[in-house]
């Protein structure tokens, strides 16, 4: 027994083992907690923001193009296609703020939100409506008689 206490040849090895395992365990715990944010939510947010501004710009350029060729007496209707899901989530395009704030709003089901400007067109022609990405038909229509 006396020999056992006097012999400290393997102490540093054990200490090293303990210190390293503690380090690695704490690192792993940190990673485990923040893995979802780092690997899933962060990129998803980026994708949603990018796609939303892309789709929003599509909407505004469509509206601008339609505005440029509106018939004096008549109808113009245009169907457009948008992805049903962005970043695994469905979303709605909301034009109800167009009259007051001159924007289109895209809101995902988890609450991500992007606005794009429609550069003052709603001053001359009223724009309103909402559409969900999961609807079958997406259409912008204008009727001069309404």
């Amino acid at each position: 027994m006396r020999n056992l206490f006097r012999d400290d040849a393997a102490v540093s090895v054990t200490m090293e083992y303990i210190i390293f395992s503690m380090l690695f365990i704490s690192l792993f715990a940190l990673l485990y907690v923040s893995f979802g944010d780092m690997m899933v939510n962060g990129p998803k947010e980026t994708v949603i923001q990018n796609k939303f501004s892309d789709i929003g710009n599509m909407m505004t350029s469509l509206v601008t193009d339609m505005y440029l060729i509106l018939p004096e007496n008549g109808v113009i209707e245009s169907d457009y296609m948008i992805p049903a899901k962005v970043g695994g989530e469905s979303y709605t395009i909301n034009a109800n703020l167009a009259m007051t704030d001159q924007i289109f709003e895209l809101v995902s089901s988890s609450g991500e939100e992007t606005s794009v400007t429609i550069s003052g067109i709603a001053i001359t022609i009223p724009i309103n409506g909402t559409v969900s990405s999961s609807d079958i038909n997406h259409r912008i229509s204008y009727d001069s008689r309404k």
């Binding site: 994708v47 710009n57 599509m58 909407m59 350029s61 469509l62 193009d65 245009s78 457009y80």
Partner: peptide, 20 residues
């Protein structure tokens, strides 16, 4: 890869010039 597909496609596809 993930920027500007829909916005540029809408400009190309909409038949503005045809109607004009």
């Amino acid at each position: 890869m993930i920027t500007g597909y829909h916005s540029s496609n809408a400009v190309l596809e909409f038949p503005k010039h045809q109607i004009r």
